[in-house]
């Protein structure tokens, strides 16, 4: 399913989501928060904010991955910035659920990494729930070190693998 739409309420949500720490659950946006929209296009001199309801958009523009420090599952400011945007998008698109995958780097034993991946996925889930997403919309899975994204055996790759990935699933309404 690919839809694009332009809509004022989405613009507000996107703007809110762009501001770390803002409660995206509240819609009391003011003008100042629209000054630095996270996304936008120039169209004949008029700025539109937009949000696509596609998984591609979610991945590319909202950001579906967050990265953790070694052995950590804490939500840092950087992680919160992305998760706020994810929460905003999910609030606007209630027909989508999320599966949060927790991953680790290869430096660690298999069982511990499964548990650590579960911790990371759960941290993300808890944060999104805190931002107003219903708990039954967010499932988690740990992959531990089973599915590295970057394949070298150096910190450059390891830091890219210590991640939680929010995967969208569209709810089929019968």
């Amino acid at each position: 399913m690919k839809k694009t739409f332009l809509c004022a309420c989405l613009a507000i949500a996107a703007a809110l989501a762009g501001c770390a720490g803002t409660d995206v659950g509240g819609l009391g946006a003011n003008d100042s928060e629209l000054e630095a929209p996270p996304v936008g296009i120039e169209d004949g001199g008029t700025q539109y904010l937009y949000s696509e309801i596609t998984e591609e958009y979610f991945e590319a523009e909202i950001g579906h991955k967050v990265y953790f420090a070694v052995d950590q599952s804490a939500i840092t400011e950087e992680i919160a910035f992305t998760l706020d945007r994810q929460a905003g998008w999910l609030l606007e698109n209630p027909n989508y659920d999320a599966l949060v995958e927790g991953h680790t780097d290869e430096q660690g034993t298999r069982e511990y990494n499964l548990a650590l991946g579960a911790r990371r996925a759960n941290s993300v889930r808890d944060y999104l729930i805190d931002k107003g997403i219903a708990g039954n919309r967010i499932r988690i899975v740990t992959y531990g070190k089973e599915r590295p994204e970057s394949l070298c055996s150096d910190e450059a790759c390891w830091s890219a693998n210590r991640r939680a990935v929010t995967v969208l699933t569209e709810r089929i309404v019968i």
Binding site: S73, E111, L114, A115, A118, R119, N122, S123, D126, T142
Partner: peptide
């Protein structure tokens, strides 16, 4: 075995 419940295993 281990069960992961929430952030706790």
């Amino acid at each position: 075995l281990s069960l992961a419940r929430g952030s706790n295993t």
